[in-house]
């Protein structure tokens, strides 16, 4: 039998990244500050994990101006949605196997 651990996504093994993906998979577009509030993390911490997810092309970024202030919105990509689903399936398989 194939080891379910192999199906886990290395990038998503980090919990904050997983949480960012969880927010973006249920919500169509989320701002940086709202994401920070939701996950209760610092600016630097969130930014570094967002960068990691962006590098994998799991999320996309759209920048615009609202009331002349820069406004950054994050969206999940199709690639990211698939990766999240696969990782979730693998997590379930791992937990199931141990029981």
């Amino acid at each position: 039998m194939k080891n379910p651990f192999d199906n886990l996504d290395k990038v998503l093994e980090h919990r904050i990244r997983l949480q960012i993906m969880s927010v973006l998979v249920t919500n169509d577009g989320f701002e940086f500050s709202a994401l920070k509030e939701m996950l209760n993390v610092t600016d630097g911490n969130l930014a570094s994990h967002i960068k990691a997810l962006e590098r994998e092309k799991y999320i996309s970024i759209s920048k615009s101006f609202v009331d002349r202030k820069p406004n950054t919105k994050y969206k999940i990509t199709e690639r990211g949605r698939n990766a999240f689903k696969k990782h979730l399936d693998a997590l379930e398989a791992v937990v199931k196997q141990q029981k």
């Binding site: 919990r15 949480q19 927010v23 996950l39 979730l88 379930e92 937990v95």
Partner: peptide, 8 residues
Amino acid sequence: IASIRTIM
């Protein structure tokens, strides 16, 4: 898994 659920 639990954290995914609560965050969602």
